[in-house]
């Protein structure tokens, strides 16, 4: 098993797998932020300033925050020291949550554009 040596002194994984995965989460969070900002701009440009606009922007911000929270939780798990043992596999809940956030962006965009 990587991460442990004879004599059970845990060492860093030489392949830096947790670090790479953590950075992949960061990249994905940044991509999500760009998409949320563009969707926000879409709402502001397309709709008149009414109650609907406020609701849609709130929904966008909520989806973005949900993604951020899921990513942050996962990144903290991956940042645990090697002595904590190998990191746990990502839960299907995290995967579904991030996908749901993505789909909210699409649904919102389609609703505005069409």
């Amino acid at each position: 098993m990587a991460g442990t040596e004879e004599g059970s002194t845990p060492v860093r994984d030489p392949g830096l797998q947790p670090e790479r995965t953590r950075m992949a989460w960061r990249r994905t969070t940044l991509s999500c932020a760009v998409a949320v900002v563009l969707a926000w701009r879409q709402v502001l440009l397309t709709l008149e300033p009414t109650g609907t606009e406020v609701v849609l922007v709130a929904l966008l911000v909520l989806a973005g925050l949900a993604f951020l929270t899921a990513a942050h939780t996962r990144m903290r798990t991956l940042a645990a020291p090697p002595s904590a043992g190998p990191p746990r596999t990502m839960t299907a809940r995290t995967a579904l949550l991030t996908t749901a956030c993505t789909l909210i962006l699409v649904g919102l965009g389609a609703a505005i554009v069409l």
Partner: peptide, 9 residues
């Protein structure tokens, strides 16, 4: 997922 965000953006 990033590919998806790129397409949406």
């Amino acid at each position: 997922l990033r590919t998806a965000f790129a397409l949406i953006g």
